[in-house]
Simulated scan of single mutants.
Amino acid sequence: MKIRIMYDNKPTYLEVPDEDFTLMIDADYEDRLSCAEDKETVTRRSPQEIMDERFNKPDYNNWHKFDRNRGMPKKPFRKDDQAVDETDHMDYFSDNTHEETREKKEEYEYCCEIIRTILKPKHSEPFIAVYLDGMSMTDYAKSVGVSKSAISHRLDTAKKNFKKVFPESSTFPSCHG
C-alpha cells in the first residue's frame, strides 16, 4: 500500500506492506474507542486517514501558518517625480550568516573539548588538526617537526582510544547528545 506523507507542502509516497499497518490501525481504533461517547459509531480507519489526521494535517497547518505570507515584499510607495526603484530588495530579508557561523564555531569548539578530555594532548591535537581541520598528515608533521609515520601512529592510537569510549558511531549532531 502506498502512503502519502506531506513534507514542506510536497507529497512523498512510501510503499509499505499491508500487514505492517495492522498494529497502527488497531492502536488508533482502541484509542478512538476509549475517547468516544458513542462507541458504536467508531469504525476502523485506513492507514492513509490515520497518517492524514496525525501527521499530514498538523504539518500542513504549521507550514501554512508560517509560510502563507512569504513572497516578494511590496515595493515602497514612490511618487511620480521620483526615480524608479532599481534595488533588488535583498535588504528586506534577514541575513543570518553570522548566527550560522557562530553556531558552527560553537559546535567545533564543543567537539574539540570532548576530544581533548578523552585523549591525551599528544593524540588529540593531531586528531583535531587532521580530521576536523582537514590538514594533511604531511603538513601537520612538518608544522610539529616530527615524521609523518609518527603522526600516523598517533592517529591510529587516538582512533583506538576514541573507539573504546564511543564503540558505535552516532548519526546525531553533537547538540542532540
Results as ranks from 00 to 15, higher is better:
T22N: 08
S94I: 13
I115L: 04
E168Y: 09
K142D: 15
I115G: 04
D28F: 01
A129K: 11
D139N: 14
C112A: 06
D139L: 08
E37L: 14
K159F: 03
V84E: 13
R45C: 00
L14Y: 06
P126I: 04
S170T: 15
R78T: 13
K148R: 12
G134V: 14
E107P: 03
S152W: 05
T138F: 01
I128D: 02
E37I: 15
K10D: 06
S147R: 11
C111P: 01
D133L: 11
Y110V: 04
F55G: 00
F55H: 10
E15F: 01
L23G: 06
A27Y: 05
N9F: 10
F127V: 05
E30P: 02
T138H: 04
G71T: 10
K74W: 00
D80Y: 07
S136L: 03
K65L: 14
K57H: 04
H89E: 13
P58F: 00
T22Y: 02
A36R: 01
F55R: 02
R70H: 09
C111S: 12
E107I: 06
P17E: 13
P121R: 09
K148P: 09
E15T: 07
P17T: 12
F93K: 07
D81Q: 02
Y131L: 13
E86S: 06
P167F: 06
Y92M: 10
T22L: 06
P11Y: 05
I151G: 08
H176E: 14
E109D: 14
A36K: 02
D133T: 11
R44F: 01
I3W: 00
K104T: 07
I25K: 00
K159I: 05
K104C: 09
S136R: 04
D8S: 08
M6P: 03
V84D: 12
D18K: 09
T87Q: 03
K142Q: 12
V84Q: 09
F162C: 14
Y60D: 03
S124L: 05
Y110L: 11
E53L: 08
H123N: 13
P173T: 13
V42H: 00
Q82Y: 03
K104F: 04
F166Q: 05
